Computed example of a mutant assay.
Amino acid sequence: MDKFAFFAFNGDLMCFQHVLLNALDLAEKGHEAKIIFEGEAVKLVQKLEKSTNKHYFAAKEKELIDSICKACSAKLGVLEFNQKTDIPLKGEMSGHPAMESYIKDGYKIITM
Rank of each mutant, 00 (worst) to 15 (best):
M1W: 04
K3I: 01
F4V: 15
F4D: 04
A5Q: 11
F6L: 14
A8T: 01
A8C: 10
A8K: 06
F9Q: 09
N10V: 11
N10C: 06
G11P: 03
G11T: 08
D12C: 09
D12L: 02
M14S: 12
M14P: 03
C15N: 11
C15P: 01
H18E: 04
H18N: 12
H18V: 10
N22M: 08
N22P: 02
N22S: 12
N22Q: 10
A23I: 05
A23T: 03
A23R: 04
L24I: 12
D25M: 09
L26Y: 06
L26A: 11
A27C: 02
E28V: 01
E28T: 02
K29W: 03
K29M: 11
K29F: 00
H31Q: 11
E32A: 12
E32G: 05
A33L: 08
I35R: 03
G39R: 07
G39K: 11
E40R: 11
A41C: 06
V42W: 08
V42D: 02
V42A: 09
V42H: 07
K43E: 09
K43Y: 03
L44H: 05
L44C: 06
V45C: 06
V45L: 08
V45R: 00
V45S: 09
V45N: 04
Q46E: 15
Q46M: 09
K47V: 14
L48F: 09
L48K: 08
K50R: 12
T52K: 15
T52F: 14
T52R: 14
N53Q: 12
N53Y: 01
K54G: 10
H55S: 15
Y56E: 00
F57I: 05
F57V: 01
A59G: 10
K60T: 09
K60D: 00
K60F: 10
K60G: 07
K60R: 15
E61V: 01
E61W: 05
E61T: 14
E61P: 04
L64Q: 03
L64K: 05
I65H: 00
I65W: 02
D66S: 13
S67M: 00
I68T: 02
I68M: 09
I68E: 02
C69Q: 01
K70P: 02
C72Y: 01
C72F: 03
K75N: 13
K75V: 10
L76F: 12
L76I: 00
L79R: 05
L79Y: 13
E80C: 08
E80Y: 10
F81Q: 06
N82S: 02
Q83S: 08
Q83H: 04
Q83K: 15
K84E: 14
T85Y: 14
D86S: 11
D86H: 11
I87S: 04
I87G: 07
K90A: 10
K90I: 04
G91R: 03
M93K: 15
M93N: 15
S94F: 13
S94Y: 12
P97I: 03
P97S: 10
A98Y: 02
M99D: 12
M99L: 11
E100C: 13
E100S: 15
S101K: 11
S101F: 06
S101W: 00
Y102A: 08
I103W: 06
K104I: 14
D105M: 05
D105Y: 00
G106R: 09
G106F: 01
G106L: 07
Y107T: 06
K108T: 12
K108P: 02
T111C: 07
